[in-house]
Simulated scan of single mutants.
Amino acid sequence: MTTITIKINERSKKGKAFLEFAKTFIGNDKDISFIESEDVEDKSPYNPEFVAEILERSKNLDKKNLTRLNTDDIWGSIL
């Protein structure tokens, strides 16, 4: 069995026409199946927990809730 992946812009005239052609051509054929999948570009490659943490920190930046470091004693101001 061979799998072919085709990326189609379903908003364009050619994309709509190709999808209609493919659906009509395949029909109820048992040997060929047409599988629609979600757009891969919409998936984030980042861990959702990491994204949530970064967004939370950006909210703190907006509220001016920052940690100030003493440049003379960096380790002392961190700990």
Rank of each mutant, 00 (worst) to 15 (best):
K7Y: 05
S58E: 14
I32C: 07
W75I: 11
I78A: 08
T2Q: 12
L79M: 11
K63V: 04
D73L: 00
I54S: 00
D29L: 05
A22D: 05
K63Y: 11
R68S: 12
A17R: 06
V51S: 03
S33F: 08
L69S: 06
N70T: 03
D72W: 00
N47P: 00
T71P: 09
E36A: 06
I8G: 07
R11E: 13
S12V: 10
L55P: 00
R57I: 15
T24F: 02
D73N: 07
E49M: 07
V40L: 03
N28Q: 15
T67K: 15
D42Y: 08
N28P: 05
K16N: 06
K30Q: 12
E49V: 11
P48L: 04
N70Y: 07
L19S: 05
I32G: 00
K16M: 10
K63R: 15
P45F: 02
L61T: 07
P48G: 04
D73V: 00
I32E: 06
K13T: 12
N70K: 07
F21C: 03
S58F: 14
N60M: 01
F18C: 07
L79C: 05
N28E: 15
N60D: 05
K7V: 02
S37E: 15
I4F: 09
F50L: 11
K43Y: 14
S58G: 05
I8E: 06
I6K: 01
I74V: 09
R68Q: 11
I26K: 05
N70F: 05
E10A: 06
S12M: 08
G15K: 01
S77V: 07
S58N: 14
S12Y: 06
T71R: 13
D72L: 04
N70R: 02
S12T: 15
E49C: 02
P45H: 05
F50T: 08
S33V: 11
K7Q: 08
A52T: 05
D29I: 01
R11V: 07
A22K: 05
N70W: 04
L19E: 07
G76Q: 04
D72K: 08
D39V: 03
F18Y: 08
S77W: 01
L19A: 08
K16S: 01
N70M: 01
V51C: 01
K14H: 14
S58A: 14
K43F: 15
S44T: 10
S58T: 14
E38W: 00
R11Y: 11
K59D: 06
S77G: 03
K23R: 15
A22C: 09
K7S: 03
D73Y: 01
G76L: 03
K16R: 13
V40C: 00
N65S: 11
K14W: 13
F18L: 14
L69C: 05
K16F: 06
P48A: 09
D42K: 13
